[in-house]
Amino acid sequence: MSSREEILGNVRASQPEIAELPELEYFNQNSENPVEKFLEMATLAGSQVYEINDVDSGIEQLKKVFPEAKKVISSTTGLSFGDSTEWLNSDPHTLADVDLFITSALLGVAENGAIWLTDKVLGQRIAPTVNEHLAVFLSKETIVVNMHEAYDKTAEMDYGYGLFLGGPSKTADIEQILVLGAHGARSMHILLLP
């Protein structure tokens, strides 16, 4: 008998009588203004959030924050900042010296300030993690109250890799003292479009 058969047989013999699966609720009644809550929570997690009117003013903002960025890449087409084509087919290891990666998020979550990204919008899976700094366009309209709504809204999305990203990379492994920039992006800039 294969290990698979043996394990499944043991599980079948051990599992108790079927217990009922509970109904889920959205818990999104009487919630605070989702955009305000998102701003509060994203800032708390260490992200920088800018409310902007259009993509161009977002790019101006980024150029102000990163005047000396040498290697800038983007998975959002039509931006006047950084390479948006060449890098897509390169070996992911070659992206280790990227100063700034610009992308667009599909959704924001008010209760934790996280954004939802998939390999489809990222171009390469490693892109949001291997760079020094990360900038993300996010439309206010896509912000949902909590994770229940977030899973509902992303249910039909097709992805091989999906990521709720809650801010810059961080660690508290040394004496529980919070430090930003563990392995991934040292800073995360969210450009909030109307």
């Binding site: 993690t129 890799y161 999906g162 709720f164 990203l165 809650g166 961080k170 991934g184």
Partner: peptide, 11 residues
Amino acid sequence: QPLTIYTSHFK
């Protein structure tokens, strides 16, 4: 924390 920073879905 309200969520882990990297909550990654590998499919």
